[in-house]
Amino acid sequence: MDKKKLVILASLFLCLIVLIVIYLNLGGTAKSRPAQFISSSQSESEAEKQIEPSTIILFFPSEHDSLLHREERKVIPESSLAQQAKRIILELLNGSQLGFISPIPPETRLRELYITGEGVAYVDFSREISDKHLSGSSAELSTIYSIVNSLSYNLKPIKKVFILIDGGEKKTLGGHIDLSSPFQPIYDMVAK
């Protein structure tokens, strides 16, 4: 009798652990899709009612020229400006769906993003953005301006973008472009 109970309890406990593990794993893979992750905690129907996908434009370098190219993407609208900005960066981190070059090393994580009253977005990346970055002025420029242009183009209140690495100010990504000042977008770099 006691033995049976124990077995049932043990199997229930095991199930619970398995469920937790599965849940955590999903959480891990969903890190680049935080909006969906958040909405999954609400009831499905309620979430669907709210969702009216909005279009954002991302800028990626291409194999064919030295310009940045537009890529449209439908995303779930976010509540705050900072959340929308995070969304854009996370989509950039996911890389291009149209075969453009993904200028940010895939291991890179977005650590934090906040926007000041003066319209400067501080985007804090994990160290991989610099450690795993391909060295060269052109590579650095395309990474920086795909971030800066994507944020500023979609979110008008963002006038400038300051790139932080591992929570701090770094001199450069790879020895060239100055990260100690915020960047303004350069739309001349975008293909017509």
Partner: peptide, 23 residues
Amino acid sequence: IHVNGSYRKGAAGPETFFLSQDA
């Protein structure tokens, strides 16, 4: 003096930079 690096394999040729006004 630098030597450039790009994600594009086809990127070629010299480039000369001076500081941008923004900075």
